[in-house]
Amino acid sequence: MKKQLEKLLAEAYAAPEPKKKQAFLMNLKPREVSLPEMLWQQAAYVRWPVWLFAICMMAFAIGGSILHLEDTERIVTVLMPFTAAISVLETNRSTRFGMSEIEMATRFSLRSVLFARMTILGILYAVMLCVSAPMLAYAFGGKLLLTATRILIPYLSTMILSLIAERSALGRKTGYSSAAIAALISLVTFWISQEQSQKFMVLRYTTLLENWGILIVLVLLLLTILEQQKTIRQVEAFA
């Protein structure tokens, strides 16, 4: 009965055949997407643990600065390599899970997706640095540039090494080489930040940063950009 009624309703509501349907559907093209719009779209694909980790780090740096918690700066510095590792793992996600071919067949090229994700994560961590570094410097009476370089050096070093590792055959096979690199750099950073370690060093770490910190960061930044470019360029070859 219901089927019969639905059939009658379909006939009663029938409209004349559309004349321009096929031509319209054949010419229907997606709208051009601007860069900010694409970044916004891709931000939705960045997994929530990445955002959570960055927010927790920032909250810890701000909270520690306000409450004058001892070792806040050291903990932030030691944890920075992990943010870099997470960035690299996040941007290489499609390759790691064998989704590159599918992503290359989508509307945006894999390169542009990768570029967008790197940019998003770069902006995220830049914001984190811009908020954390002044707070930490102000709270613990340090120099802003010194604090910023102290935070950036382990981050950028991990980033460079992780990008190289993820591109290597071994890195692609194991999948989590950047996590191992982050752990190693984190340990080294922790060791360097200890007072006892300074006697094994030719130059005190703080003195080194005061004299050469900005230059080191600039060199590392340049190398990071170069490595990111290489990754973006070669990503389709790895798929």
Binding site: Y13, A15, P18, K21, L25, L28
Partner: peptide, 14 residues
Amino acid sequence: LENAYDKIYRYAYF
């Protein structure tokens, strides 16, 4: 998409 087109067209015609 064609089905969606038909549905919207039928609705608009109604």
